[in-house]
């Protein structure tokens, strides 16, 4: 598994990083490697031992490194960092996903040729900070609990050509996380130490997000 992931990383490197002559436009994607970055809001529903059927709203930060195969298709590696305040817990999770991106030449009810869809899957380390919850902190002796499991999602967005040549986007998406394992973590100086581990409980997160961002290169 690990060697396969490393092989994919090197395979991506071997693609030519140099761009074609024309520039990236919202309705004409440029072949090669491109990086998008953006931020926005997300709303999530949590179901776990620590937060049963709770909701959280927070900020997110999204990056996508994509290999744009042609003007319509791209392979991408993405991350979306979410911060949510759920009751007394700060929840921080990072959705690492790989996926496909497709631009529609024609889309119903609009003349825009910058509309695209993304489908992705991956893994999402999710951390509950317990510092503000003395009872659980006392019981577990851990300062945070880290969950781990698969994430699946999809999104639809629209790209725009800015007046100064910058390409920007607005994207709406959803994700489903099923987190199967968790560990309690406390810091021994700078070193994070596992206090306990459990694989018995399943924990789900349903999340909607909106993100606005820019083409970095």
């Amino acid at each position: 598994m690990n060697s396969r992931i490393i092989s994919i990383l090197f395979l991506l490197i071997s693609f030519s990083a140099r761009a074609d002559k024309y520039v990236f436009k919202a309705d004409q994607w440029q072949k090669g490697i491109h990086l998008f970055a953006g931020g926005g809001l997300n709303a999530s529903i949590y179901n776990s031992d620590f937060a049963k059927q709770d909701q959280g709203v927070g900020l997110n930060f999204k990056t996508e490194v994509g290999y744009y195969i042609n003007s319509q298709w791209a392979l991408e590696a993405a991350s979306r960092v979410k911060f949510n305040k759920v009751k007394e817990y700060l929840v921080w999770d990072t959705l690492f996903t790989g996926g496909l991106k497709y631009r529609f030449n024609h889309f119903p009810f609009t003349k825009s040729k910058g509309i695209y869809a993304r489908a992705f899957a991956g893994k999402a380390p999710t951390v509950f900070y317990l510092r503000d919850s003395p009872e659980i902190y006392r019981k577990t002796k851990a300062s945070r609990i880290q969950y781990d499991g698969p994430v699946y999602g999809g999104a639809i967005g629209n790209m725009y050509d800015g007046a100064n040549g910058k390409v920007w986007y607005v994207e709406y998406g959803f994700t489903y996380q099923q987190l199967n394992r968790y560990i309690g973590v406390k810091n021994d100086g700078e070193i994070p130490v596992t206090e306990f581990a459990n694989t018995g409980n399943k924990f789900k997160i349903y999340s909607l997000y909106v993100s606005i961002g820019l083409l970095v290169f």
Partner: peptide
């Protein structure tokens, strides 16, 4: 070298 994993560092480190 041959066993990468998802670490358990806090966000100030990782981000």
């Amino acid at each position: 070298m041959f066993s990468p994993h998802f670490d358990k560092d806090s966000f100030d480190y990782n981000i």
